[in-house]
């Protein structure tokens, strides 16, 4: 899996970037979603994969015996997931509102604020 997952991550990044480069606002949002999947999976993989039990100390035991998964990246990813959920929700609302005021989904029509 150490070979496969990096390729999956790379593909997710590639697909995310491709979607970000579209003219459609909705596709941009989907690209952002893919980007966050890619990042989370990257943290998970880069920290080292362990095909083993969760980092939870069994009720009967006093301590966790190896092998077990690394708990720290899990906590980090959890934080990242929740943050990206908030961000995605906001981006959705923004897209909706932008669509309402500009009346198009085409990003190329949204350039009145640049120089």
């Amino acid at each position: 899996m150490e070979i496969v997952l990096p390729v999956v991550i790379g593909s997710l990044y590639a697909m995310a970037i491709y979607m970000l480069l579209r003219r459609s606002l909705v596709k941009l949002l989907i690209g952002l979603g893919l980007l966050s999947h890619a990042s989370n999976l990257l943290i998970f993989t880069a920290a080292g994969l362990t095909r083993s039990k969760a980092p939870v100390i069994p009720l009967a035991a006093d301590q966790l015996r190896p092998p077990h998964a690394d708990p720290l990246p899990q906590a980090l990813i959890l934080t990242a997931i929740v943050i990206s959920f908030g961000v995605t929700a906001f981006a959705l609302a923004l897209a909706y509102r932008a669509y309402r005021s500009v009346n198009t989904d085409d990003l190329d029509q949204m350039k009145t604020t640049d120089a």
Partner: peptide, 16 residues
């Protein structure tokens, strides 16, 4: 917080 936020978002999206 998570509960409140999620509800706020869903209600707002529904009400528009």
């Amino acid at each position: 917080t998570v509960w409140g936020v999620t509800l706020t978002i869903i209600f707002a999206l529904e009400e528009v």
